[in-house]
Every structure is written in C-alpha cells, then in structure tokens.
C-alpha cells in the first residue's frame, strides 16, 4: 500500500502540533521518523493511523482518504504498535495476539485464524503462546505487540519508538525482524545509529515540521544533526556497509539557548 501524507496539520485547542507535513511511503519501504522529544512524531503516527483527524490536509492509503474509512476498514489496513502497552488483566500471549483479529471478526469472535499462528511465528514468540503477559520481559512484550499488529494483516505498520526500553541486542533483533517482514513500515526512532542501519528512508521532524526527508545518505548529515539535535558529529560512510556512520563530538549548546 502506498501512503501519501498531503499538507497535513493537526492542532489541539489552537496549539499547532504538526503542520505542512508532506510525505510519501512507498510499498514495502521502511521509513524512520526522527526528531527530538516533542517534535510531533507520535502525533504524526496517530494521524497516519487515522486515530486523529487532521485539522488540515489528508492522508491517503492508495486512493482512499484514511480518516473517512470506517474503523474496521482502517484497522484491516493499518496497524499501530504504541510506545507503552499496559494492561492489568491476566491475558495470555496468544490472547493478546488474537486481539489483532478483532477488525476481521464478527461480534462474537470467530474460529481460529491461521494469521494468528503466522504472526506469532514471524515475531518469533511461538514458545510464549501460553505465557501470561504479566510475566513477559520488555522485549517479549514488544514482540507480542508486533505479533498482534501482524495478526491484523496490515498493509502499513506504524511503530512508535519500538526499541525504547530494549537492550542493544533486542533492539537490533527487533528491527531486523521488522525489516524482514517486507510490510510498509513507518517507525518513530530515537536512535540515529539504528535508523542509519535499518531504514530505507528518513523523515526528520523539528517543532512539528519536516526539516529533511529522503534516503539515509541524503538526510543524515553533520549540518542536519547540528540543526535538529544541537549536536556536533562527523558522518562517514561505514567501511563495510557503506551506510552513514556517526561519531559524536558533544553538543553545540543550542539546547539551552
């Protein structure tokens, strides 16, 4: 599915959170959404997901305008993995994954669908199926939510800082898994190294506007890092992968200016 964000703005109580957002997500691509805290990444993901109606502009999934789709139709096309998934209920992993079938089911659920087993296999949590959600580690919870999202059989996968609270090994593991899926993915990421290593394209937000977008090489430049994050860095091509490699030299002081 090809997602086109056209001149989108969203504001709440006259405060504009994001504006003039234009972006194109090609089928099968993996796009990283970068930007400092409060730059509007989560808001943009929610607008793309159809959970917030843009105050201006539209988001199109192929020919259709996302916010005019019914909730059910939307949830069959677009799946979202939130930053924090919390429940007090004694749910099992399989039951959490089965929630992904809700947009496909009737009122009383339905027979077991193969996509639940497939999703657990893809997210590599088959061995956890009978476990209680409450006993899972952070990495296992994130994978379970990914499997739930995949059980929706979406054409677009939205991930909101999916690698937060994961150790390095689990961060790489998670992003490798997602890349291997081949589903169009937009992921808000904090870690620029990870973004450089796993994304096809990057979109960088600052104060609710896009300041740069394009391929990883085009976007990740020393000037951009200075402008957006207020940090000094050297960007060199990695000797073996050729992807941009970042070396930090400290802040420019712009954060407190």
């Amino acid at each position: 599915m090809r997602i086109a964000v056209e001149n989108v703005a969203w504001s709440v109580r006259d405060v504009t959170i994001i504006e003039k957002i234009d972006a194109l997500f090609e089928p099968g691509s993996f796009t990283g959404l970068l930007g400092p805290n409060g730059s509007g990444k989560t808001t943009l993901l929610n607008v793309i997901a159809g959970l917030r109606k843009p105050t201006y502009g539209t988001v199109r999934a192929d020919a259709q305008v996302v916010h005019t789709l019914s909730g059910r139709d939307r949830a069959r096309r677009i799946a979202l993995v939130e930053q924090h998934a919390h429940t007090g209920l004694e749910l099992r992993v399989r039951e959490v994954v089965e929630l992904g079938r809700v947009p496909h089911q009737g009122m009383f659920g339905g027979s077991q669908h193969a996509s639940v087993a497939d999703a657990m296999k893809l997210a590599r949590i088959e061995h956890l199926a009978g476990r209680s959600w409450q006993t899972l580690s952070g990495g296992e919870r994130q994978r379970t939510q990914l499997a739930r999202a995949l059980a929706q059989q979406p054409s677009l996968l939205l991930l909101d800082e999916p690698t937060n609270h994961l150790d390095l090994g689990h961060q790489l593991d998670f992003l490798e898994t997602v890349r291997g899926l081949g589903v169009t993915t937009v992921a808000a990421l904090h870690d620029l190294e990870l973004a450089a290593a796993y994304c096809d394209r990057l979109v960088v937000l600052k104060a609710g506007r896009i300041v740069s977008s394009g391929t990883v090489d085009e976007v990740l430049t020393a000037d951009l890092l200075d402008e957006v994050y207020g940090v000094r860095a050297t960007v060199t091509p990695h000797p073996s992968t050729g992807r941009p490699h970042l070396t930090w030299h400290g802040t420019t002081g712009a954060l407190h200016a």
Partner: peptide, 8 residues
C-alpha cells in the same frame, strides 16, 4: 488508543 487502532 489501542482499542481504536483495532477499529473499535
């Protein structure tokens, strides 16, 4: 939010 993202 999770419920809405599931189409509810």
């Amino acid at each position: 939010t999770a419920a809405r993202s599931l189409g509810v």
